[in-house]
Design a protein around this nucleic acid. Structure first.
Length: 205
DNA sequence: CTATAGATTACCT
DNA sequence: GGTAATCTATAGA
């Protein structure tokens, strides 16, 4: 019965991820991301997510269409889109139908496994709730690299996503740091959770 | 081609 | 609060 249960669970997760990013993002709060590195596994429970709506969304990396960097956004739901901005990486879960290029940015989480490994990447003095606060810190806690871009998060690879219990209450607000579509309320977080990053509106220059 | 900006963070004052 | 770290992509000459 074990393989059947796993299959049903996988189908349910894919069906969820195939929905609209603004519907998927709040449902991913409480889900677990796990990366099995050479040093061992690191897991975290998501506390903050943001939705990006593909080519129709002026804040999305896919707004100007297919580019070498954003190709994995056009893959089927459940694949990883990992990109580099300035000096850091960020992890997205692709959502919606194939070729729509919508995704959910994973902005923060609470480390639940492999905290010593996360600390090895982030620094020995970092408070536990700050290890994976902010998308770049989340990526560093998980020891992500660009070669994980495009991986199937529902497969047998080293980087996986599994659903958890749905959280009871969810905060909704505008996305952090975007210069276009600043008032779209597509940022979701667990109310009062100390691992959630602070909201900062992008300057308009 | 050069200039500029970005879904950021850490460290300095 | 200001700035430096460092890669991709766009706009404009």
């Amino acid at each position: 019965m074990q393989p059947i249960r796993r299959t049903e669970c996988g189908v349910a997760l894919f069906d969820l991820l195939a929905g609209r990013p603004e519907d998927v993002a709040p449902r991913l709060l409480g889900a677990t991301v796990r990366h099995v590195t050479d040093e061992g596994p690191v897991s975290l429970v998501l506390t903050e997510t943001e939705a990006y709506g593909g080519e129709a969304d002026p804040a999305s990396h896919a707004w100007r269409g297919r580019r070498p960097r954003n190709l994995s956004m056009y893959m089927p739901a459940g694949h990883a889109y990992i990109y580099q901005t300035r000096h850091h990486l960020a992890l997205n879960v692709v959502t919606g139908p194939q070729d729509e290029a919508s995704a959910v940015l994973l902005r923060a989480g609470r480390v639940t496994e492999g905290e010593s490994l996360a600390r090895a990447s982030r620094g020995p003095q970092i408070a536990a709730q700050r290890l994976a606060r902010g998308p770049a810190n989340l990526a560093r806690s998980l020891s992500l690299t660009l070669d994980l871009d495009g991986l199937d998060l529902m497969g047998e690879g080293p980087l996986t996503l599994t659903l958890g219990d749905q959280v009871a209450r969810i905060d909704v607000g505008p996305r952090v740091g975007v210069t276009r579509a600043q008032d779209v309320q597509w940022r979701f977080s667990v109310p009062g959770d100390s691992t959630v990053s602070a909201y900062r509106r992008a300057s308009l220059r």
